[in-house]
């Protein structure tokens, strides 16, 4: 993203951030699960744009391919196969719970805003500057870290995925009796 004016970058950021927030709000408030799933795709795309703005192109591509592509496809398939589009009628009207939930959400949101607005980059900086990334290549940097420094966490993550698979099979398997 080097070479693009800072103003244009800022404009893209604002648009992508607003779309991401708006679409995720739409996603959680829709009653029809298919609509929710479609809004989620919009969210994933706009978050991918944010990653590009952060010079994390590899993560952006992975986000689009894995989340917006593969995983959302599965979600839509599941919704259609088990006919959720008509089933989930949300009729709960517990206003107290909604009120409390709303208050807590707003409080959390304000806290995060406070953190964001007072943010100052006081901490240490990493070794990967934008220039260094540009000459090294994003994918190579991520791969180097993943299989180099963080290989232990990476290997444990493979167990995490295995546990997920075993668990899904175990819970979904037909009962013997």
């Amino acid at each position: 993203m080097i070479g693009i004016g800072i103003g244009f970058k800022w404009f893209i950021f604002v648009v992508a951030a607003l779309v991401a927030t708006g679409s995720s709000l739409m996603m959680v408030t829709r009653k029809n699960p298919i609509h929710s799933a479609l809004w989620l795709i919009v969210t994933f795309f706009s978050v991918a744009i944010l990653y590009v703005l952060l010079n994390a192109t590899f993560i952006a591509v992975a986000q689009v391919m894995v989340y917006a592509g593969a995983i959302m496809m599965l979600v839509l398939f599941v919704i259609m196969l088990i006919h959720l589009e008509w089933g989930a009628q949300w009729t709960s009207s517990r206003s107290f719970a909604k009120l409390m939930g709303g208050i807590i959400t707003i409080m959390l949101f304000l806290q995060i805003l406070a953190g964001v607005f007072t943010y100052s980059s006081v901490g240490q900086h990493g070794i990967y500057s934008a220039q260094k990334l540009a000459e090294l290549g994003n994918t190579r940097a991520v791969g180097g870290l993943l299989y180099g420094k963080y290989v232990f966490a990476f290997e444990v993550a493979s167990i995490l995925l295995l546990v997920g698979i075993v668990g899904a099979v175990l819970l979904a398997r037909k009962r013997k009796d």
């Binding site: 806290q111 995060i112 406070a114 953190g115 964001v116 007072t118 943010y119 100052s120 006081v122």
Partner: peptide
């Protein structure tokens, strides 16, 4: 050392 973001993170 104290920044708002750090305090929120700790919370």
């Amino acid at each position: 050392f104290s920044t708002t973001m750090f305090v929120i993170g700790l919370g």
